[in-house]
C-alpha cells in the first residue's frame, strides 16, 4: 500500500501562549521553535504502522511519501521524517502567505494524480490555523470518501478501512473503500489504535510516535527529497480566503486565591452568583 502524508511546519504548539502581535498587527511567533504540527506527526506514525509488520519495523511493506507546502526551512522536518521511516519526501516551495486551505488541497490533488497513493493521511487540523478543512477539501477534489477525526483504523486487507471517528461523546464507525482520505486525532497513536494488514492482532505498539535511531537519521540523508514549484501543481493559486488582521484575545486575568472551601462557596454564591 502506498500512503501520502501531508505535514505542516508550525510554531511550537506547547508554547503558543507566548505569541505576540507585530506592530503591523500580524501574528508574531519569533522565539517559538518550529516543529511539525503534532497531528501530522501522528499521521506519519499511522502511515508507518499501516505499512509494516509491527514485530519487525525495519522492513517497510509499502511506500510512505511525506509532503509539505513550505519554504526551504521545512527541509529539516522532512529529513527527520525520512529518519523515522518515510521513504521519500516532497517539498512544494511556498510561503504561508501564498497558501490557503483550498490551494493546499488543490496542490495535494495534483500530487495524488501523479503519485497515485491508496490513502492520503493528514492531521485533523494543523496547530496554527486550526482550520480542519484541507483533508475534506482534498477528498472532494478527488471525488474520494473521507474519514475525519480518526481515533482508530482497522485495515480490511488494505481494500477498505473501518475508521473509529471520535465525535461529540461518541465513536462513529465508518467504513471507507480505498482510495480514501483520512484525517487523524492524537488517539490514533495509542498502542492498539491501528490494525494493519501485516501486524498480528496481538501486537502492542508503545504509546505515541516513534523516534528515529541515529543510524536511521544518517541513512535518511540518502533518501530522496524532491522539490517542486507550487505553480506547476496549481497554475491559478488565487486565494479564496485571506487574513486581513489579527488580534490577541483578551487575557483571562488570574483571579484570587481563596483560603478555604467556605470562602470559595461564599464567593461563588455572593460574588460570582453561579451556585
Amino acid at each position: 500500500m502506498k500512503i501520502l502524508v501531508a505535514v505542516k511546519r508550525v510554531a511550537d504548539p506547547e508554547n503558543m501562549n507566548k505569541i505576540k502581535l507585530s506592530p503591523q498587527g500580524k501574528i508574531d511567533t519569533t522565539g517559538l521553535e518550529p516543529k511539525a504540527s503534532p497531528y501530522d506527526e501522528y499521521a506519519l506514525e499511522t502511515a508507518l504502522r499501516l505499512t509494516e509488520n509491527g514485530t519487525n519495523t525495519k522492513a517497510r511493506l509499502g511506500e510512505v511519501v511525506v509532503v509539505t507546502f513550505g519554504p526551504k526551512e521545512t527541509e529539516p522536518m522532512l529529513r527527520a521524517m525520512l529518519g523515522t521511516g518515510a521513504d521519500r519526501a516532497i517539498r512544494v516551495d511556498s510561503t504561508d502567505e501564498a497558501l490557503d486551505g483550498d490551494v493546499v488541497a488543490r496542490g495535494l490533488k495534483a500530487l495524488v494524480d501523479s503519485e497515485k497513493p491508496d490513502v492520503v493521511l493528514l492531521g485533523y487540523q494543523q496547530a496554527e490555523s486550526e482550520s480542519n478543512a484541507v483533508g475534506q477539501m482534498l477528498a472532494e477534489y478527488l471525488g474520494w470518501p473521507q474519514a475525519t477525526f480518526a481515533g482508530s483504523i482497522q485495515s480490511q486487507d488494505d481494500k477498505a478501512f473501518v475508521v473509529g471517528r471520535e465525535i461529540e461523546g461518541a465513536t462513529a464507525e465508518l467504513k471507507v473503500t480505498l482510495p480514501a482520505v483520512v484525517t487523524v486525532l492524537d488517539k490514533i497513536v495509542k498502542p492498539k489504535s491501528v490494525q494493519s494488514k501485516h501486524t498480528p492482532a496481538t501486537h502492542t505498539y508503545s504509546d505515541g510516535v516513534r523516534f528515529a535511531a541515529l543510524m536511521a537519521i544518517m541513512a535518511a540523508k540518502k533518501k530522496p527529497l524532491a522539490e517542486m514549484k507550487l505553480s506547476d501543481l496549481v497554475p491559478d493559486a488565487t486565494l479564496k480566503v485571506r487574513y486581513a488582521s489579527a488580534e490577541l484575545p483578551p487575557k483571562r486575568a488570574a483571579g484570587s486565591k481563596v483560603k478555604d472551601v467556605k470562602e470559595l462557596v461564599t464567593k461563588l454564591k455572593t460574588e460570582a452568583k453561579v451556585v
Binding site: 510554531a11 504548539p13 503558543m16 501562549n17 505569541i19 502581535l21 501574528i27 496547530a127 496554527e128 490555523s129 486550526e130 488565487t238 486565494l239 479564496k240 480566503v241 485571506r242 487574513y243 486581513a244 488582521s245 489579527a246 488580534e247 490577541l248 484575545p249
Partner: peptide
C-alpha cells in the same frame, strides 16, 4: 463580511476575509 476565528490553541484571533 469579516469573520473572526480563534487560532493557535485560542491564543490569537484572526480576521478572515473571503474573496469569492
Amino acid at each position: 463580511k469579516l469573520y473572526r476565528r480563534p487560532m493557535y490553541a485560542g491564543n490569537a484571533f484572526g480576521w478572515l476575509e473571503v474573496t469569492t
